[in-house]
């Protein structure tokens, strides 16, 4: 799951398959994701992992790093 999301960010959002995206890298301050591509990412997660985020949950603090995203997905799956 982590690798799926990492690959999606690299290939679809930043068009850079060689980019060494780290687990704790700030996606927003790092200029990798903005508010528009964040919604694209949410649609990808919903379609491939089957976990959906309501719009108000799509905030910068919730989705700041790959680690945060995975933690939030896992929390939803555990419910």
């Amino acid at each position: 799951m982590r690798e799926q999301i990492r690959e999606y960010i690299k290939s679809d959002l930043i068009h850079d398959k060689k980019y060494p995206l780290k687990d704790d890298e700030d996606l927003f301050k790092g200029g990798l994701v903005d508010s528009f591509s964040l919604t694209e990412l949410a649609v990808f997660i919903e379609e491939t992992i089957g976990v959906s985020f309501a719009d108000p949950e799509l905030t910068v603090p919730n989705m700041r790093t790959l680690d945060h995203i995975i933690r939030n997905i896992e929390a939803k799956q555990a419910k």
């Binding site: 959002l13 980019y19 790092g30 200029g31 990798l32």
Partner: peptide
Amino acid sequence: DDDQRGAIVREVRGRIAANTEVTARYVE
């Protein structure tokens, strides 16, 4: 060199994000 290249791309994206209201979709 993937390390050098990655560091440059990271710096380019970070500077744009910090100083403007936009992000770069493509950095080569």
